[in-house]
């Protein structure tokens, strides 16, 4: 957005601060082949936290479509592959790209883009300009999926 008028500096500052609070800027990432080899945060995720995100119906939403070795969650989906063994089928970087924006690999995928803000329509108020998961959450889920060796 280009400012057409010169606003008092304080107002510009306030607007900038509000928009910065409302949206976490997406961190840049580099795709190599079919993967994002480097962590979005530069840190390793936490597999325990990742498991909780995958199990949550309000955070990850993963079990709506996928099943996973999370026996305490009774109601799991079967629209998408079972996550059991994901860590032996895919590398960490491949899993990261599939979470961030699976449409890079299959434009017709129903896998939601967990870390993408463009090419979305009618996003509900409250979810606008926010990725489904934060960079840190993506790394936690990646760490969990990598741990699913069988």
């Amino acid at each position: 957005m280009r400012l057409r008028f010169i606003l008092p500096l304080a107002v510009v500052g306030a607007v900038w601060a509000v928009s910065a609070m409302a949206q976490e800027e997406l961190r840049p990432y580099v795709i190599v082949g079919d993967s994002i080899p480097d962590s979005l945060t530069g840190l390793s995720g936490d597999a325990e936290r990742g498991r909780a995100i995958v199990a949550s119906r309000t955070a990850g939403l993963c079990l709506l479509c996928h099943s996973a070795p999370i026996p305490e969650e009774r109601f799991q989906g079967n629209l998408a592959p079972n996550l059991a063994g994901a860590g032996s089928r895919w590398s960490e970087g491949q899993l990261r790209l599939r979470l961030v924006d699976a449409s890079r690999l299959n434009p017709n995928t129903i896998m939601p883009p967990y870390y993408r803000l463009d090419r979305l329509h009618r996003v509900a108020r409250g979810f606008e300009d926010k990725p489904i998961l934060s960079a840190g959450q993506i790394e936690d889920v990646v760490a969990y999926l990598v741990s699913l060796k069988e």
């Binding site: 129903i110 939601p112 979305l120 009618r122």
Partner: peptide, 19 residues
Amino acid sequence: QGQLNLSCADCHDDNAGKS
């Protein structure tokens, strides 16, 4: 549409009957 980027058809045409 939406943050999850799904269409009605994704579920009700292409995946009806699934869980």
